[in-house]
Structures are given as C-alpha cells and as structure tokens.
C-alpha cells in the first residue's frame, strides 16, 4: 500500500524531481564517484593493472605511528581554540556593523574588513611575521611603548597557537560576518521600531531582537563548521610553521602531507582523508540530531 502511495507522490511531484535532477546528477558524477573511489584507502595503487587490496595496512601505518597521537592532539586543541575564540567574532562584528547608519562609514568598515580574505596564506604569513618581529615588528613596538619586554611570538611554543587564532581572526572576522549581516537584513524593521518606542536601548535591541533572529543561522554554521574540525587549517599552519614550534602546531593535515602526498602515497593520504571524514560526519550528524531534539534547530 505504502509503496503505491510513494510512487503516486513521485508522479504527482515530478516537477520537483526534475528541479532536483541537475544538482543530483552533479553530485553523483563529481562527488559520489570519487567518494566511492576512496576505497583506494584499502588498496595499493598500481599504475598498470588492478590495484591490490591490502586491507587495513594504510590505516595501521597511520594510527600506529607515535607522532599520530601528537598531531591528533594538536589538531583537536587548535580546532577547539578556533571554535571558541573565532566562531563568535563574526557574529559580534555583524552586530556592531548593524548599528552603524547606512552611509559612507558603514561602507568603509564593510569594504575594509573583507579585504584580508582576498589574500592567500603565504602573503598573510609574510604580514604576520613582519608584524610580530621581535626587533621592529608593530606588536613589539607597541609593547615597547608600554615598557614591556619584546616577545618572539613566532618561535614561542606558548604563543604560536594564539598567533594561529589571531591571524585567522584577522583574516576572516569581516568576511564571515557577511552571512550574519545578510540574515540581520531580513529582520522586520517594525520590530526595532516597536522596541524603540518601548524605550529599549541599543544593547537591549541587540540582545532581544537581533541575536534571537540570528540564532538559526548561527546554529547552522556552527554545526557545519564542526564537519571541518579535523582540518584546523592546512595552509595557515603550513605557512606559519617553523622549526621551533613543530611539536605544538604540527596538525594531521601537515603530517599527512609530509608522509603521504610528498612521497606519492595516495593510499595513505586517502586513509587519512577517510578518517577525517568519518569524524566530521559523526560530529555534524551527532550535533545536528542532538540540537534538533533539544532546541528544534539544526542544519536543516
């Protein structure tokens, strides 16, 4: 009985499926096939002839390495720091920008704050290394002004992770606020008018109108970002790394890059990719369903 009703519904909604078709076709060809081909993680690649099945060999090689534990730990620490300290910043920026009157100053703030996003990490690393130079870098010049001793942040094991956090913040705070700003623009202006008539202050309007209206966007982005938890920013770390801080910022991706990609070991790299993906999937689906149950909000 149910089968027939499903068929019926499909026939009735054929236009929906037609609209879905281009997207699905794209996903199958360009994503599902490569993902199915991640079976390479269980094989040795052969240029000529069939790949050889080797079972868990590459996973064992990955997990059994003593360095794996350390890079995993670094990845988790750096990702957690980024979530705690970076994720809220664009929300804050959008709230602040929203308080600016429409006009040249607002345009200036918006335009300038998006700029760093256009630069690659190689360039940003150059900027930060200059900025943090212990002799004449901007930060130490300021420290010197307050009669604080000069600090070499880039080679300091205690500070380098914070350099990662701040440089990422510098790069993306403005850019990532765009999404929230777009969401804020959808809020019905009459709500603010009503609040003002009731005598609500700027901060109260933020707290009781803007923020609640942003919540579903916040939840969606938060959960989606968890999917990249195991990534922690390859380009950034790669460009800001130096010998002194290897043990504190060597992350899974930089490690796999050295062991796998540089040596042409695609199977090994794929195994690592599979591991990262599974964690990401579990994190996203886990938080999504949990959040759905607790707050009624989720990714969809």
């Amino acid at each position: 009985m149910r089968k027939i009703s499903s068929l019926k519904r499909i026939r009735k909604d054929w236009i929906l499926y037609l609209m879905l078709l281009p997207g699905m076709l794209y996903f199958v060809i360009f994503h599902i096939i490569p993902i199915v081909n991640m079976k390479l993680a269980f094989q040795d690649y052969r240029i000529i002839g069939e790949n050889v099945w080797v079972g868990m060999k590459h996973f064992e090689q990955l997990f059994s390495s003593p360095a794996f534990k350390d890079v995993l730990m670094n990845t988790v620490i750096i990702s957690t720091m980024k979530i705690i300290f970076i994720f809220p910043i664009p929300i804050l920026v959008s709230l602040l920008v929203n308080e600016l009157r429409f006009g040249p100053y607002r345009k200036y703030v918006q335009s300038v704050s998006y700029l760093p996003h256009f630069l690659s990490w190689v360039v940003i690393a150059g900027i930060w290394i200059t900025l943090l130079n212990p002799v004449n870098g901007g930060v130490n010049v300021i420290r010197d002004f307050f009669q604080l001793p000069s600090l070499d942040y880039m080679t300091s094991k205690e500070h380098i992770r914070w350099v990662l956090v701040y440089s990422e913040m510098w790069r993306s705070a403005g850019w990532d606020s765009i999404l929230y700003l777009a969401a804020i623009l959808k809020i019905n202006p009459s709500l603010y008018e009503a609040a003002r008539i009731d005598g609500a202050s700027t901060l109260q309007q933020m707290r009781y109108i803007t923020l609640p209206a942003l919540m579903s966007t916040v939840v969606t982005l938060f959960i989606l970002n968890l999917g990249f938890f195991m990534s922690a920013g390859f380009d950034q770390v790669f460009n800001l790394m130096n010998d002194s801080v290897l043990s504190v910022i060597d992350i899974l991706d930089t490690y796999v890059y050295r062991i796998g990609i540089l040596n042409g070991q695609y199977s090994y790299a794929t195994a690592a990719g599979l591991f990262k993906g599974v964690i990401g999937l579990v994190l996203i689906l886990g938080t999504h369903f949990l959040s759905k149950r607790l707050t009624g909000k989720g990714v969809w």
Binding site: Q61, S65, P66, A67, F68, D70, L246, S247, D250, Y255, R258, I259, N263
Partner: peptide, 10 residues
C-alpha cells in the same frame, strides 16, 4: 618513514 619524520622533527 613516519618514525623517521618524528625523529627529524624532534
């Protein structure tokens, strides 16, 4: 290889 990488980093 992976041990060697760790030792070199050390």
């Amino acid at each position: 290889i992976s041990q060697w990488d760790a030792m070199e980093n050390l």
